[in-house]
């Protein structure tokens, strides 16, 4: 044990061997950083403002903002109670529920899109009944929100679950002693206590929803102003107008970086 401690101390104090840690890390950082740098440099060479204000770019930007915020809203309203239950309660089948919540995070988006299509599509498992009441989801903005919620909401649930679980159980006991019911305990104690975790989870969900591509293009299709979000406009903009694709990419990178920074700040405060 003590030899191990000496070994680590030696490494950190000896500048000659620091490169063992610095060099591999720098290579990886270069891999992350250089493509982003190239994107930004390319954007400055073309008329960035003009491209970012192009009709299809503005339409994609608006649609992305509206749909991703709706997805975050759904995650908050439906995901918070679920995360609370997963963090505080023990119930039969909890392991299955946890797995179900984690699965969308690791599924390839193409699988998510295909599954959504054969579930909620016009002839889908559930979708065929929607048709009778006049609801057709594929190729609508609602389908975009569903695809985003499917892939992004699990991030919020995961963050919220950890936030609720971290709260000292003595607080919970104290609230019960004071005669609080489940709702009072949640709204007066747990929700404010977990506020920071919930907020940073919501921000992470927002960034993921903004970046959603595979499930959207499969389930919602691609139509300007209706289902063509920023990632779709970037993908299909390659052949038509590379300038617009690059401008939108830079906007998306910048916005995501700002949101991640915000999430960090909230976590640290």
């Amino acid at each position: 044990m003590s030899t191990l401690r000496i070994y680590f101390k030696h490494l950190t104090s000896d500048t000659h061997t620091n490169w063992i840690f610095v060099l591999p890390g720098l290579l990886l950082l270069a891999l992350f950083g250089i493509p982003l740098l190239a994107l930004i440099l390319q954007a400055t060479q073309t008329s960035f403002i003009e491209h970012a204000l192009a009709r299809e770019a503005v339409a994609a930007l608006k649609l992305s903002l509206v749909t991703s915020l709706l997805s975050v809203g759904i995650a908050l309203i439906l995901g918070t109670p679920l995360a609370y239950a997963l963090a505080r309660w023990q119930f039969a089948g909890k392991k299955v529920v946890e797995m179900l919540v984690d699965l969308p995070v690791v599924l390839p988006p193409a699988v998510a899109g295909l599954a959504l299509l054969i579930a909620f599509g016009r002839q889908g498992l559930v979708g065929q009944f929607f048709v009778h009441i006049g609801i057709q989801l594929p190729f609508t903005s609602a389908a975009v929100v569903i695809a985003q919620t499917f892939v992004a909401a699990p991030l919020y649930i995961r963050a919220a679950r950890i936030g609720f679980a971290d709260i000292d159980s003595q607080l919970e006991e104290a609230a019960y002693v004071e005669g609080a019911n489940q709702w009072q305990l949640f709204s007066a104690v747990m929700f404010p206590m977990a506020g920071r975790a919930l907020t940073s989870g919501a921000i992470l969900t927002w960034t993921r929803a903004l970046g959603e591509f595979g499930a959207t293009i499969l389930f919602a299709g691609n139509l300007e102003g209706v289902t063509q979000t920023m990632p779709l406009a970037i993908y299909l903009g390659f052949e038509r107008n590379l300038g617009v694709a690059i401008a939108l990419s830079v906007v998306l990178v910048g916005f995501s970086a700002a949101l991640l920074t915000l999430a960090r700040v909230i976590e640290k405060e």
């Binding site: 599509g121 016009r122 594929p138 190729f139 293009i217 299709g221 289902t227 993908y235 299909l236």
Partner: peptide, 18 residues
Amino acid sequence: VSNESNVKQVVAKIQLGE
């Protein structure tokens, strides 16, 4: 209702009856 990224996607959407 949709401009698909390749022709096979058009076939798939029709095959699924969407």
